[in-house]
């Protein structure tokens, strides 16, 4: 049990809270203040002028922002289910061959722990149509001779595929850990009854994985929402704006067009979305751990 302490334990939090207030809360408030002012290099004369919620109104009706939202949603909508199904299948397969786990898992995890810029570079190198391992193969097959990152549609599918390549092992890792932690009795009983492996998966494994499934989905959701580095290196949002995720759009508004007033409003909206997602994750994780206790 936790014990009582004077000042509700806050003296232990002072260093951390001081840091968070100065480095995070204060700059965040400054940014919010900036989001209700005009600040851009296109019309310096107007800089500093108070414009109320104009920036937010502009954001809501901004076609480019809407495009960014669509790209991000579509990205998650394709990548997450694929990662989910493939990751689960792989976890179950490896659980049948536990002797392999010690060798295979660390190797599988490599794409996931690499620096995202290295991941982007790996993709660019391998997909290069002139000398990339995969690019040459595809060109020989007559697919995308101009390179997969060359056309909008292919480029979008490619960044999704790279996400799948990088993060499927993450799903596998969590599901495998969960499967290993399961009680053995139901399986032993099922074997005695002569149940098939598919049956055991449907009737035992899947129901017992249920609490974890929500956690995995939401963790992947928040992470996929954050994706920036590897896409920035691979395409920079192009060709055109085919791979311009919401994060890349926010980057461009601020650090390519230096539209800092409007950009602050965009970032505030991004923050709000991730705040809501975090809240949901926490709720789910809490419910799960309470269910276990």
């Amino acid at each position: 049990m936790t014990r009582k302490t004077p000042w509700g334990g806050w003296q232990w939090l002072v260093p951390m809270m001081a840091f968070l207030l100065i480095i995070e809360l204060w700059p965040f408030l400054v940014m919010l203040d900036q989001s209700v002012h005009y600040l851009s290099y296109t019309q310096p004369g107007k800089n500093g002028q108070f414009i109320g919620l104009d920036n937010y109104r502009k954001a809501v009706f901004d076609d480019d922002l809407f495009h960014g939202v669509s790209v991000t949603l579509l990205y998650m909508l394709i990548a997450l289910p694929v990662e989910f199904v493939a990751g689960l299948a792989l976890a179950v397969l490896i659980s049948y061959h536990m002797t392999l786990k010690r060798i295979v898992m660390p190797l599988l995890l490599i794409p996931m722990v690499l620096a995202p810029v290295v991941v982007g570079l790996v993709a660019r190198l391998n997909l290069n149509p002139d000398f990339g391992l995969l690019g040459i193969m595809l060109r020989e097959l007559g697919i995308a001779p101009e390179g997969l990152l060359g056309t909008p549609f292919n480029a979008f599918l490619t960044i999704v595929a790279v996400d799948v390549w990088q993060w499927t092992p993450f799903v596998t890792m969590i599901f495998l850990a969960a499967i290993i932690g399961m009680p053995r009795e139901p399986y032993e009983a099922a074997v005695v009854d002569g149940a098939s492996r598919w049956h055991m998966f449907r009737r035992i494994t899947l129901p017992m994985l249920q609490p974890i499934i929500g956690v995995v989905l939401l963790l992947r959701l928040t992470d996929a929402f954050k994706v920036f580095d590897q896409v920035f290196i691979m395409t920079g949002g192009g060709p055109g704006a085919a791979t311009e995720l919401l994060t890349i759009f926010a980057y461009k508004v601020n650090f390519a067009y230096w539209n800092l007033g409007y950009g602050s409003a965009v970032v505030a909206l991004l923050f709000f979305i991730s705040f809501v997602m975090t809240f949901t994750v926490m709720k789910l994780v809490n419910r799960m751990s309470r269910g276990k206790a």
Binding site: I23, E24, P27, F28, V30, M31, T222, F225, K226, F228, D229, L246, T247, A250, Y251, N254, G263, S264, V267, L270, F271, S274, F275, M277, T278, V281
Partner: peptide
């Protein structure tokens, strides 16, 4: 959980 870009602009 917040995207890097949302933290980097204020900073």
């Amino acid at each position: 959980m917040a995207p890097g870009i949302a933290l980097v602009l204020p900073l």
